[in-house]
């Protein structure tokens, strides 16, 4: 029997699975491409939720990892290496190393200082990208095409690429589910509630928090790889502090510390942005207050509302 709490994630993934089967979305595959973008940002939001929601560490530089993943594709492509089997490991390893280095320093601080220092590292990554004159500098660079998989150009079509992103989202979601309910995840969740209690029973939290920081950064690097492939374009704009802020908003909108919520939050954010921008060019004027209202009145974000409706709450 399917447990009640599995209904929501199953519905979400079922919706993603059937969407491309509903029909041909015209030549530009507009809807398909929006939902692809939703899923890519869902991966980024889920990864951020690991540190922000489960670890209660407000990282304001998470977009740096989107950029690192994207530049791994861009820089390697510029040198003629379009093979995903090389690009993906490169994206993940560089993301992990950046997370290890910046996390080891950032995690020595707490609260507002942690926010500021992660923001600073994010900006460093941004300006580093801007300074890469050989790779387009401020303007970024256009890719020669999507990545190849073992030499084959199999994700050139929007539909094929959609399923690649879908598979990545499922893999990331399943991995994160395991992590948060594992021994390791329980330490992270315990530290969110009462770090002193956790230390008093013998957990040296720094090592755990650094590990979750590296995992989150690495997974976001994967989102960066996908983002570069979708747009076939790479630029420093992927790692602005505004982008980091948007990722935080997605997680808040969905509900902190809920993987389902992070996916819903990314979807709600991007679809609202898309919808509102069709009505008015001043859409940000409406979007800002809307977000404030959600945070103020729907505490726990979309998942908070969902839990109140269904009465289910299992900490995921």
């Amino acid at each position: 029997m399917i447990m009640r709490r599995e209904i929501l994630p199953l519905s979400i993934f079922l919706a993603f699975a059937v969407l491309p089967l509903l029909g041909d979305f015209g030549s530009d595959a507009f809807i398909l491409s929006i939902v692809t973008r939703v899923m890519i940002f869902a991966i980024a939001a889920v990864s951020l939720d690991l540190i922000l929601g489960y670890g209660a560490l407000v990282s304001f530089g998470h977009a740096a990892f989107l950029g690192i993943g994207a530049y791994a594709v861009g820089i390697l492509s510029a040198h003629g290496i379009r093979e995903a089997a090389i690009q993906i490991p490169a994206a993940l390893i560089v993301s992990a190393l950046f997370a290890l280095l910046t996390g080891a320093i950032s995690l020595r601080t707490k609260g507002i200082y942690f926010i500021m220092i992660t923001l600073a590292f994010g900006q460093m990554a941004y300006f580093f990208a801007v300074s890469l004159a050989a790779y387009g500098g401020d303007d970024g660079m256009t890719l020669p095409g999507r990545s190849l998989f073992f030499g084959y150009d199999i994700v050139q079509s929007e539909r094929a690429f959609y399923f690649l992103v879908f598979a990545c989202l499922i893999a990331v979601y399943v991995a994160c589910r395991m992590i948060v309910t594992s021994r390791f995840g329980r330490v992270i969740r315990g530290a969110r509630e009462n770090p002193q209690r956790m230390e008093a029973i013998g957990f040296s939290l720094f090592a755990y928090q650094l590990t979750i920081y590296v995992i989150a950064g690495t997974l976001c690097g994967l989102a960066g790889f996908l983002l570069a492939n979708q747009t076939q374009f790479v630029s420093p704009a992927y790692m602005t502090w505004q982008r980091s802020g948007e990722l935080i908003v997605m997680v808040l909108l969905g509900g902190l510390g809920s993987l389902n919520g992070a996916i819903l939050g990314a979807a709600a954010f991007l679809l609202l942005e898309e919808g509102l921008s069709h009505f008015t060019e001043y859409w940000k004027l409406y979007f800002g207050p809307f977000l404030v209202l959600v945070v103020l009145f729907a505490r726990g974000g979309l998942m908070g509302g969902f839990k109140r409706l269904t009465g289910t709450d299992d900490g995921r």
Binding site: M178, I179, T181, S182, R183, F184, G185, R186, V187, I201, G202, F203, Y208, T211
Partner: peptide, 14 residues
């Protein structure tokens, strides 16, 4: 858990 084996285990529900 703190006194029984490693807590750097990422699989299996604690």
């Amino acid at each position: 858990q703190a006194r029984s084996g490693s807590s750097f285990r990422f699989f299996g529900r604690a």
